[in-house]
């Protein structure tokens, strides 16, 4: 990373360092009693693979991968045996919006329920085919069903599909929230996700430039379905927080945006982002699929306040208005 050599002039250090933290929470979903519904269907295909239909949009957050992992886990089949259909409203059922950090929690639950129902139907069919007296004792593994205590009695998903080509499962999940009353009392969101961030900054008192030297982000994830994807969200959320604290403003003047292109609307680049130490705290949420909570928004929230608190620690100036641009810092420092 490019970093200027520390200048020392007449004994005064022109770059000052400071640390700051931010701690936040975020309530998942539409909230306040609104019907927050996700639907999914699972279907056994002729070749023994499983089709998952769910209208959850992949906007880059990793929804496709997460839905497939949840389906694979529930049915105990390889990732490549799950065929996801999520991009066509005439095929995939409504799974709500890809927002409010709700897809992993809500639609993940719907996919899990759909797969559990399909699994139940598959076991029912396998019971008949294997001619055993109960589903209890049957195990689903890698696309086959077998008797746990007598594994050679076994039938594959493909063989099952060839005998019954109408095995399906439906999953509907409605997140529970309780509408608030006229005093704002109620249980408006569930679950809540917590995050904490620490940063160390360096403020150049000659130019007003703020450099983030290092950072740590601690995230309560319930359970990380895919830790690499969570870490990716942290990187992206952190960058968005840096932009919010230090750079971004559409610049309104009489209703007109003065900064409406990337020529003037400055966002961080990878060079503005330090290496972030990431800590995932796993405390599985009971109502979540395999305990996994939504994290897409929570990763962003503590970043900007941590930076503002670090700037204060560095130069003793409190900024009540963002973004804290170089100009604003210089103006405050020159006030003496």
């Amino acid at each position: 990373m490019y970093r200027r050599i520390k200048k020392v002039l007449g004994g005064d250090i022109l770059k000052k360092r400071g640390k700051g933290i931010g701690v936040t929470f975020y309530g998942t979903g539409y909230g306040n009693g609104f019907p927050d519904v996700s639907r999914a269907y699972a279907r056994l295909l002729e070749d023994g693979k499983v089709e998952i239909l769910v209208g959850a949009t992949e906007v880059g957050q990793g929804a496709k991968t997460v839905m497939v992992q949840i389906a694979s886990e529930t049915l105990n089949i390889p990732i490549e045996d799950v065929i996801l259909v999520n991009e066509d409203t005439s095929k995939a059922p409504d799974a709500g919006t890809a927002a409010a950090s709700r897809q992993t929690y809500n639609s993940g639950n719907a996919v899990k329920i759909a797969c559990e129902n399909l699994k139940d139907n598959i076991l029912q069919e396998a019971k008949k085919i294997l001619n055993v007296n109960s589903k209890i004792g049957l195990v689903c593994e890698k696309g086959s069903v077998y008797v746990k205590t007598y594994p050679s009695k076994k039938v594959s998903f493909k063989e099952i599909a060839n005998i019954n080509n109408n095995l399906k499962g439906e999953g509907v999940f409605i997140a529970h929230t309780t509408q608030m009353d006229e005093n704002g009392q109620g249980a408006p969101y569930w679950p809540y996700t917590f995050a904490a961030c620490a940063v160390e900054v360096e403020v150049d008192t000659e130019t007003g430039e703020v450099t983030i030297l290092r950072a740590k982000l601690v995230l309560d994830v319930g359970k990380a379905v895919n830790p690499t994807l969570v870490e990716g969200q942290i990187d992206g959320g952190f960058a968005m927080g840096v932009g919010y604290a230090l750079m971004e403003d559409v610049g309104l003047k009489d209703g007109k945006m003065l900064n409406s292109s990337f020529e003037k609307y400055i966002i961080p680049t990878s060079l503005d982002i330090p290496n972030i130490e990431k800590v995932l705290i796993e405390y599985p949420e009971d109502t979540a699929p395999y305990g996994a909570k939504g994290i897409g928004e929570p990763v962003l929230l503590p970043v900007a306040p941590a930076i503002l608190n670090a700037i204060y620690d560095a130069i003793g100036v409190r900024f009540y208005e963002i973004p804290v641009t170089c100009e604003k810092i210089l103006l405050q420092l020159n006030k003496g």
Partner: peptide, 9 residues
């Protein structure tokens, strides 16, 4: 499969 770093599909 949960908790595994499956490559984004």
């Amino acid at each position: 499969f949960i908790g595994k770093n499956i490559k984004r599909i």
